[in-house]
């Protein structure tokens, strides 16, 4: 079992954001989570990546219980994620942003930094090389020393992908990667996601663009009001009565 979530519940005050969800992310596949606004998708991601602690339930990753592990430790185990808003530092270059992605695989500290030790030089080089590698993978080599503020929305998304990939992850969680992107560019991102899986990564994504999900996802889980209402292949989910109900008559599913 790659990543398994067992009876996961998250309560905010009186509000049940995620309610008793059991779900597995399959290795080497594109797993998708869909659902209407406020269905608890983002909370679900926050629970998996460790930004929130679940109220109850367990999360296991590669056989290890990570329910109580802080987010940064999970990243070290190989769980990376992106955010809906990219959170990039706009006033710095793409390269400067992405370099920090490999920081978790380095160990130089304050003193190494001040004394410029061998270790620091070696690790700095490693981070730069890693950044070049992932920028090449997402196709941003050309704009590596461009200010993030001057990039297009789609390029920013790619830069955020690169940052996540620089952590050397096994599982990448993508939170609405295609939000705010025009249809042409969406295709490019689809290709990139498929490429990631072909490279041996596992992807789990939240997305509202149904056409994209139906095209690339191997498996889909549907959340509604924090509860899992369906799970299966795109074909199965598309024809699921509960899902159609949740999307108000099903017109949203094309």
């Amino acid at each position: 079992m790659f990543l398994r979530v067992e009876r996961l519940t998250k309560r905010f005050g009186g509000l049940l954001a995620v309610n008793d969800v059991t779900f597995s992310i399959e290795q080497g596949k594109i797993n998708a989570i869909i659902g209407p606004n406020g269905a608890g998708k983002s909370t679900f991601f926050n629970l998996i990546s460790g930004l929130h602690r679940p109220t109850s339930g367990t999360i296991t990753f590669k056989g290890r219980d990570i329910t109580r592990l802080p987010a940064n430790e999970r990243a070290k185990l190989g769980i990376a994620r992106t955010f809906q808003t990219t959170h990039l530092f706009e006033q710095a270059t793409v390269m400067d942003n992405v370099i920090i992605g490999h920081r978790l695989r380095t160990s130089s500290n304050l003193f190494d930094a001040i004394l410029r030790t061998k270790r620091h030089r070696r690790e700095e080089q490693a981070c730069k090389e890693k950044a070049m590698e992932v920028l090449d993978f997402v196709g941003l080599t050309d704009v590596a020393d461009r200010m993030v503020a001057n990039l297009s929305q789609e390029q920013k998304k790619r830069a955020a992908f690169a940052l996540a990939l620089a952590t050397d992850p096994e599982l990448v969680l993508l939170d609405e990667p295609a939000a705010g992107i025009n249809p042409d560019e969406t295709e490019g991102l689809e290709e990139l996601i498929v490429n990631m899986v072909q490279r041996g990564l596992t992807v789990c994504l939240i997305e509202h663009k149904m056409s994209m999900i139906m095209k690339i996802a191997d498996r889909i889980m549907v959340l509604n009001y924090g509860e899992k209402i369906a799970e299966g292949t795109p074909e199965e989910v598309k024809n699921n009565e509960a899902v159609i109900q949740a999307y108000l008559g099903g017109s949203a599913i094309a």
Partner: peptide
């Protein structure tokens, strides 16, 4: 340095830094 960049990453977004494996 890498350490300085780490601080800047925390300033920029603590959530992002955490998910990048940085002990904030």
């Amino acid at each position: 340095s890498l350490t300085g960049r780490t601080y800047i990453a925390i300033r920029n977004s603590e959530e992002l830094a955490l998910t990048l494996g940085i002990s904030t």
